[in-house]
């Protein structure tokens, strides 16, 4: 019969030789192999101390962005909530009052902005939908909490620190190689 591939091998039906029937040489060979593994490099990443570098397109927890003057970019248009396939985003809009120009970039802003991290599938469609570059997915991941309620992230959890008042925290939140920068557009 013609073989389908050239990879098939004839199975050896030879009765085992005396040396093989002792098993000991084979066992010693196996033990040499396991012993050699003592000197191999371990692929383990000791997680909390060491972290694996992410690819530049990694999608972690969300960040609500500010502009270079520290004003919130979000105008509560709701496009992210519409784009969200998991319906994880809820928001309530409010109008900017006179005197709040240093807090919100445009006349309308999100008074409440919540993302349910248990529902979120981290697809990044909100990021793509946003016309104001207000929402980004960061490299932070693995949120942990004791209650389900704790996984609903409000504005206080999501907003990036103000670059004016807390420049260090802001720089830290940006991370290195982070695509989120306040001065990209406009």
């Amino acid at each position: 019969m013609q073989a389908l591939t050239n990879r098939s091998k004839e199975v050896s039906r030879k009765p085992i030789s005396f040396l093989e029937s002792l098993y000991l040489p084979a066992i010693f060979k196996g033990m040499a192999i396991t012993f050699s593994h003592m000197f191999k490099k371990q692929p383990t990443i000791h997680y909390p101390e060491q972290k694996r570098p992410f690819s530049p397109v990694f999608r972690g927890l969300h960040v609500l962005n500010r502009d270079e003057e520290g004003r919130e970019r979000c105008t509560a248009c709701g496009l992210c909530a519409v784009a969200c396939p998991a319906e994880a985003i809820t928001m309530e809009a409010a109008e900017r009052m006179p005197g709040e120009e240093n807090k919100y970039r445009e006349e309308k802003y999100a008074a409440r902005y919540e993302i349910n991290m248990l529902r979120c599938i981290f697809c990044g469609l909100c990021e793509e939908a946003c016309p104001k570059d207000a929402i980004y997915l960061s490299e932070t991941f693995a949120p942990a909490n004791f209650t389900r309620k704790g996984f609903i992230y409000g504005k206080s959890d999501l907003l990036i620190p103000d670059p004016k008042t807390e420049p260090e925290a802001y720089a830290k939140a940006l991370g290195k190689g982070e695509k989120t920068t306040a001065s990209t557009t406009n």
Partner: peptide
């Protein structure tokens, strides 16, 4: 662990 290229309990 060491024989299996792991760090083991540490």
């Amino acid at each position: 662990a060491i024989l299996q290229d792991r760090p083991g309990p540490n």
